[in-house]
Design a protein around this nucleic acid. Structure first.
Lengths: 152, 152
DNA sequence: ATAATTTACGTGTATATACACATATCACCG
DNA sequence: CGGTGATATGTGTATATACACGTAAATTAT
């Protein structure tokens, strides 16, 4: 049989399509990163913590435009895996998140896998469409935030 | 202060950008649908069950390109809310999912809210970019499925 | 008719996401 | 100094997602 690979028509709903696309691309990246033991979400976090040095959770949440409490749970996984540390700070309110040696090694392992996925995307989708996504994210966030700030 | 609304730069990672965009657009649609008591995911399911008549879970999963077990959990919420029914079928393996009167009423309530969100998207983003999303989803699913079928 | 395969279903487990709360600390003001 | 508002953190709860399993019924092959 070859009846599996039937291609679904796009939905009329832009949000449904976006979510479908998000699920699909996540699967691709997760598969690509599998040998490293990281999912895309985790790789992204780890890479950013590595790049932007020790910083607190709220700052990281703002940097990544991620809900802070979501970030807290995601970070816990990395901490449990020994990839990051969550250490106290002079400011007793906050805690500094930093990458460990093990974390750095894992990033080094995962990075080529991620780059391969990026290459695949460029080949299959094309850079123009892909670059659109970044702007689209920012625009959409602007719309959502705009609604919030109406009541501020 | 007006330091909140700072716009994030796109990530270098296409998947990260897609996920950011997906979170943002979901928030917009969820907010728009809030008066109906439905989230976008639930509205989409309910609308499709309404439109494509009674059908079993696996068929619906294929129709929506949704992981079947994900769908099962999502349907349970609609069933608990009395919006759909899950009734037995002549084929004892499967169960027929159908919309209830209450479900139809809820769709009628939610639909204008959804349409308004769609209008907002068309105004803010533009139809060309939005239509791209549908094709993008299908293309990305093709890539993922393609990887699966290499081992088939 | 029996065996093998396919199809459908649901659950266990884990991750990702977000909202509502509660708490603790800091900075600033009177 | 004490109060107030801003800031940082974590938890409870709920939804969305997906993979690995196990089971049951139908279909197909032998």
């Amino acid at each position: 049989m070859s009846g599996q690979g039937h291609i679904q028509k796009p939905s009329a709903c832009f949000c449904v399509n976006m979510r479908r696309a998000s699920r699909a691309i996540t699967k691709i990246y997760d598969q690509a990163l599998a040998p490293s033991g990281l999912k895309l979400t985790q790789y992204s976090l780890l890479k950013n913590i590595d790049a932007h040095g020790p910083l607190n959770t709220s700052a990281l949440a703002r940097l990544l435009t991620l809900e802070r409490t979501t970030l807290v749970r995601n970070l816990k996984l990395l901490e449990t895996a020994g990839l990051i540390e969550n250490s106290p700070s002079p400011d007793l309110r906050e805690r500094q998140v930093s990458i460990t040696d093990h974390g750095r090694q894992t990033v080094a392992l995962a990075q080529p896998l991620w780059k391969q996925a990026q290459r695949t995307m460029r080949q299959q989708i094309g850079i123009e469409h892909l670059e659109l996504l970044g702007h689209l994210a920012a625009t959409l966030e602007g719309i959502a935030i705009g609604q919030d700030e109406l009541s501020a």
